[in-house]
């Protein structure tokens, strides 16, 4: 494990701490930005696919700690979000994230993640591994607020990366 991986691992853990503390204090978490998801997107845009894959996995594992869904749902969802962000930034658009691309990525991932979690949980409950959760629990008006909060923080992160370009290396 090199220094860079340790640095990003530490950063992911700090964001996880910030996220769990924010959700604990501001219980109405719709407006609490999903820091781990945002960092997975930023990471995917600036790093290789294997790195994106394993850091998304790690972020998902941390997210699992406080998840009410069947184990693995968050890991599964974040892996797909990470891979999706990687493919979008490599194959469809330029690697430099333009504002509309960034908005598309963030809103897309914010909506896609609960859908993936719902799908995973539905499969697990159909196998009798857990009890089913209604679909409305995953996709509700709170997603709109979450997307707005995520957009706000994402542009802030993007600005910071431009200010400190060594973060993207």
């Amino acid at each position: 494990m090199n220094k860079r991986s340790l640095f990003f691992g530490g950063l992911f853990f700090l964001l996880f701490l910030l996220h769990s503390a924010s959700v604990k204090v501001f219980a109405s978490a719709s407006f609490v930005p999903q820091f781990l998801l945002l960092f997975v997107i930023v990471f995917a845009a600036t790093h290789s696919l294997p790195e994106t894959l394993w850091f998304s996995f790690g972020a998902g594992f941390l997210w699992e700690t406080f998840s009410a869904e069947f184990f693995g749902a968050q890991i599964f969802a974040l892996i797909f979000c990470g891979l999706g962000a990687y493919l979008v930034t490599r194959n469809i658009t330029a690697q430099e994230l333009a504002a509309p691309t960034a908005a598309f990525l963030v809103v897309g991932a914010t909506v896609l993640r609960p859908l993936l979690v719902a799908g995973y949980h539905a499969v697990a409950s159909s196998l009798d591994l857990t009890s089913p959760i209604p679909f409305g629990t995953f996709l509700n008006p709170g997603v709109i607020y979450a997307a707005l909060a995520n957009l706000l923080v994402f542009y802030l992160l993007r600005f910071l990366i431009r200010l400190f370009p060594q973060l993207s290396k």
């Binding site: 996220h19 769990s20 959700v23 604990k24 109405s28 978490a29 999903q34 406080f66 009410a68």
Partner: peptide, 15 residues
Amino acid sequence: EIISRDFQNPDQKVV
């Protein structure tokens, strides 16, 4: 005491 809430649905589950 509450350690944290579910990130996805804070109004449904707490730890």
